[in-house]
Every structure is written in structure tokens, then in C-alpha cells.
Amino acid sequence: MSDIAIQTSKLSLWYGDFQALFDVDLDIKQGIITSLIGPSGCGKSTLLRSVNRINERLGYVRIEGSVEVLGQNIYDPAVELIQVRKQIGMVFQRPNPLPLSIRDNVLFGHRLHSGERGSKATQEEILEAALRQVLLWDKVKDRLDSRATELSLEEQQKLCIARLLPVKPTVLLMDEPCSALDPTGTEAVEELIWQLRGQYTILIVTHNMAQARRASEECIFMLLGKVIEHTPTDEMFVTPVHKETADYIEGRYG
């Protein structure tokens, strides 16, 4: 099926001896925002982080099953990790701009993947387009060479989204992108994510059920490493199928 962007089948994951994911089967549709919810430690971040294989940097992670992104199993030994990361951008919980200038941050990925080619004018165009898309251009256009770490957290998080765009990923993974932000920042970043839907397949982990409800089209509820329910967001919050889901969204635990 061509409208499936991410497909996991029988995905199990262990951190050392601890099993964090159990036979996860998911079909995540292309071009929409899907949110992952569930109580702390339910494996939602782990699932997200195994979609671009960033989990592996820990060194003691073992995986069974497969994750297909656009029909390609990314755990196939022939797959180049760098191409995986190019197709799949990631936004982290705590904004993590590199300790470089705003310009170098936005162009970081582009320079990695284009091998430094491209004229200065092209780079400036890419820079402006990316910053405009995250609604940051007007705020930072006069200080592109100042350090990105001096921006406010909200601006830093927008910058972290902006730097993914020049390499033209198909999937964006977001690990609680608003949890370090204040309510105004949260609203601004949420609005930005909402604008990006359609162009990118967005998978977003959130602790905030209200956020999942207002900012996603489909919703996945996880509990203890298993997927309990995957339905359109409206249905999940109005007519949850499973008792665990109902209990969680009504705030009985988690």
C-alpha cells in the first residue's frame, strides 16, 4: 500500500535484558500527524527512536522484527544508516541546536548530504526558505551568525525543525517536542507542526493528551511495550475500544 509511510511488523526491542517493545505491528499513514501516547515507560519514545535507529547509539540494544519506511526495511544490513537518517528527521525533547551559528545549524544537514557543493547564493536561499517555513526568518534574519544556543527555547526548537527541512526528509519524528517549552512556546510550535502536515509524515510522542487530541489525526495508545489501540484521534478520545485506553485518557493512571 502506497499510503503507508512507516510499517512495523513484529517489532520487539530489548535494552540489555529488559524488553521494552513486544511485537509491535503498526501501519502509519503517509502525510498525516500520528501521535503516540501512553504512560511513562510504555515504550513510546523507544518505538519512535527505533524508526531512525538512533537507539543503537546506546550500544546494548537488540531488535527483532522489521521497520519499513516507504517500503524499505531500514534494519536490512544493506541499508546505509546515513540515508536512513537523511530520510527521517528527528526533533528531540530538549531543544538541541548545535553550539554553532544559526546559519551553520540550519545548513548543517544540507552540507553533510550535499558534500559542501552548492554556491553561497544557493545556501542562502535554502537558509531563508527553511527559516521562513518555521516562521523564524523575521526574528533571526539580522543575526544569522550569532550562536543558536542564545535563542529562546521556543526559537531553538523551531530551529531544530528548520534544520531538518533542507535535506528534504519524508518522515519527521518528534519526541515530546513541546515538553520543555512554556504554554506560549508550546502553542507556537504546535501550530508549526500542524502546518507541516501533508508535506511530511509526522510521528509525535506526547505526554500531553490535550496536545494529542488537538494536534494529531491518528493516535496510538501504548502500554507496557505493547500497542493497545490505533485509531483516528477523534474516535480514540470519544469512543475508545479498550478499557485501558479509556482509563488512561480519563486520567485514572499515567
Binding site: 538512533i54 547509539r57 537518517r85 541546536p97 544537514g109
Partner: peptide
């Protein structure tokens, strides 16, 4: 988190060292 950020963007280990860690 700097290394993680660069790695998630597809930087190789050497690129992470030269472009992020050493500066």
C-alpha cells in the same frame, strides 16, 4: 545531546568529531 543531534541528522562519527565536538 550535540553528538546525538548530529548523528540523527546523518553525520558520520568523523563528521561529528570535526564539525561538532572539536569546535
Amino acid at each position: 545531546r550535540y553528538r546525538e543531534a548530529a548523528e540523527a541528522m546523518g553525520a558520520t562519527r568523523w563528521q561529528i568529531i570535526v564539525r561538532v565536538v572539536l569546535p
